[in-house]
């Protein structure tokens, strides 16, 4: 079986694609074409979602939605709706407007538009974009007969298909220390850490207080999609270990696997 690897730069980090095909779809030409298509998809999403790129749709929303309802495409609207549902189900701990006090986003499905009810609101999809990009990459993988794949977005979000992909987890504050080894089988993982060694305080904000979180924790979440894994690793880390375990107990049906470091 042929294996093909390729990486691309997007969302301020590096994405790695490892593919193994089968059923006659394991030649290098095919795997390269699939890997390139995934890379182009990730870059397309970066151009759509980045708040730093002034030509992105997200930048347009952040510029215009305080003064009017901004019409967006159906894909972006669906992603914003998903973020709003995540905000509600996590009791406000996952919030794409965390930096500007949380909430403040009105979505209208009939016109596919978004408007800020708080003029200070700015959306940042940084906590979900990589996971969403991995899931979109997986749609391409599914379409083109790939049976084994590993996609890695900046080493904090990973999604695997087929083979058991061994993953080592480094300690967030002692990068030389491997604290956990797991085999990723048809699941996605996201790991959010309060801070890394170079930071004196966390850049993760509690949306309910707009203050940086104070713990030194790292929260690893395994879920069925990378988007879901990112939503929960962010929300649970922000809640803190104790609140998070109480919150998880209230979820009636959850396929989440959670580990703390």
């Amino acid at each position: 079986m042929y294996e093909y690897q390729r990486s691309c730069e997007a969302m301020g980090t590096r994405f790695d694609v490892i593919l193994r095909g089968s059923h006659g779809q394991d030649d290098e030409q095919h795997l390269e074409a699939v890997a390139v298509a995934i890379g182009e998809e990730v870059q397309r999403l970066d151009a759509l979602l980045s708040r730093f790129n002034p030509s992105s749709e997200m930048a347009r929303i952040n510029r215009e939605a305080k003064t009017k309802a901004v019409r967006v495409d159906r894909e972006l609207f669906a992603l914003l709706e998903r973020c709003e549902i995540a905000r509600q189900t996590t009791n406000g701990y996952f919030d794409i407007a965390a930096a500007t006090g949380g909430a403040g986003i009105a979505l209208d499905a009939a016109s596919c538009s978004v408007r800020f009810t708080n003029p200070a609101t700015q959306i940042d999809l940084g906590a979900i974009g990589k996971g969403y990009a991995l899931d979109c990459g997986f749609e391409i993988i599914a379409r083109f007969g790939i049976e084994h794949a590993l996609l890695n977005g900046g080493t904090s979000s990973v999604r695997g298909l087929g083979a058991a992909w061994p993953i080592d987890l480094r300690h967030p504050l002692q990068p030389e220390r491997i604290v956990h080894r797991l085999d990723l089988v048809n699941l996605a993982l996201s790991c959010s850490a309060a801070r890394h060694p170079a930071q004196t305080q966390s850049d993760v904000l509690n949306p309910l207080t707009s203050a940086p979180i104070l713990s030194n924790d790292a929260c690893l979440v395994l879920a069925e999609s990378a988007t879901e894994a990112e939503i929960y690793s962010t929300a649970l880390l922000t809640m803190g270990k104790v609140n998070a375990s109480q919150y998880l107990a209230t979820l009636c049906r959850s396929n989440l696997q959670v580990k703390w470091f």
Binding site: G24, Q25, Q29, H30, A33, V36, G39, R143, F144, G145
Partner: peptide, 14 residues
């Protein structure tokens, strides 16, 4: 730096 080739959803044997 890529082959400028779109992937095909069916195998070459098809």
């Amino acid at each position: 730096n890529n082959s400028w080739r779109r992937p095909i959803p069916i195998p070459k044997s098809d």
